[in-house]
Every structure is written in structure tokens, then in C-alpha cells.
Amino acid sequence: MMGYSMRFLKKVSFIIIIIIMLLVIMIRMPNSENNEILIKNVVIENSENVKKIKFNQEINFDSLILKAINKGIPLAFKVTLRVVEISDIWPTKTILKKVGYYQIEYKTLRKVYRIEDINGNKHEYKYINEAIQKILKVEDFKFSFIDNNMNYNLWLNVALDRKKLPKPLQVNYFDRTWYMNSNKSIHQL
């Protein structure tokens, strides 16, 4: 039995290795980026121990997405902020990673577009344009770290959080509408 198992493992080891490699590739494989989010006007404000960042975005909300919002599908955007230490010798080291969300949602009963900004504040707008204009501005995203006067960079990324979409939309990988992502925006701290 042991011998059979060993022979079996020996025979299938090659297949197992290939499967593991493919799994790793699939997990690591970045989503097809449409780069529909453009980060601009990034301002980093320093106050004593806390830093604040604000930036504007350009997001291409096409008719399908607007329709989805009006159908009550909430759109949550994930803002990922990383403070990294750049070194010529060593690999980039992440000093801080902070994730924030802002969201737009249409409340059917009250016929308002509710915005929850990155700090958790809620705003309601009667018209979608007002609501969209609101979410395009991210303000007062706070972060703090011990600044050792090192060569730190700030990496910023905004993406539509597909995990908060309804499941059918999540798993429909053929629909590229929901692949909204920004390039990595890099800024010197």
C-alpha cells in the first residue's frame, strides 16, 4: 500500500507541481486594468503627528454603471494607501498600509443618492450628478507613521471593490464594466 502510494505520488508529482504553479499565477495575476480611475491633484497636508491627503478623481461612469446605481446597486471604492521606504539596495519596504472606502448608493424609497465618504460621513443628494461630484473628491484621509526623515514614498490606488457588488456581477468575469482601477499614484513624502 505504501509502495503504491509512493509510486502514485511520484507519478502525479509533476501534475501537482503544474497545478500549484498555475494557482499561484492565477492568484498573483493582476486584474485586467481598464484604468478608468484617474487620481489627480493629490495634496498631502502635514499637521503635527497626523498627515491628511486629499485628491480628486476622474471616473468614467458609463451608462451601464449609472443604470446599476439607479437600480440600487451600491458602488464601493477602495482607497489603498501605502507608505513605503525606497532603497536602492533593499527591496521596497512597506511602512504603513491603510485602506479606506467611500460609497455611493441610491435609496429608492427616499429617492436620494447617499454618499458615505472616506471618513464615514454620510451625505444625501437628490441628483446623481451632485452625488458623483461629491465622491470624486476625497478629503481628509488621515494617516500617521513615525517619520524618521527617511526616503518615504506614498503609493495611492483607487479601485472599485468588486466584492461589494452582487454575487452574479462579482463572478461574471466576462463583463469588464466592473473592472475599475487606477494606476498606482506615487508621491514623495
Binding site: 429608492t108 452582487p166 461574471n172
Partner: peptide, 25 residues
């Protein structure tokens, strides 16, 4: 009652919107 109607309506709308995705999946 109003909230539950809204909730069901929203779900229904979401489903309606994603029915093609559902079919595909």
C-alpha cells in the same frame, strides 16, 4: 412596510440588472 418593500425592490432591481450575468455564470 416601506423599508421592506424598498429592500425587496432593491434586490429585485439588482437581480434584474444582473440577470444576464446570472445566466452566463
Amino acid at each position: 412596510l416601506a423599508l421592506s418593500v424598498e429592500s425587496v425592490y432593491d434586490e429585485y432591481q439588482q437581480l434584474t440588472y444582473s440577470r444576464n450575468s446570472l445566466k452566463i455564470i
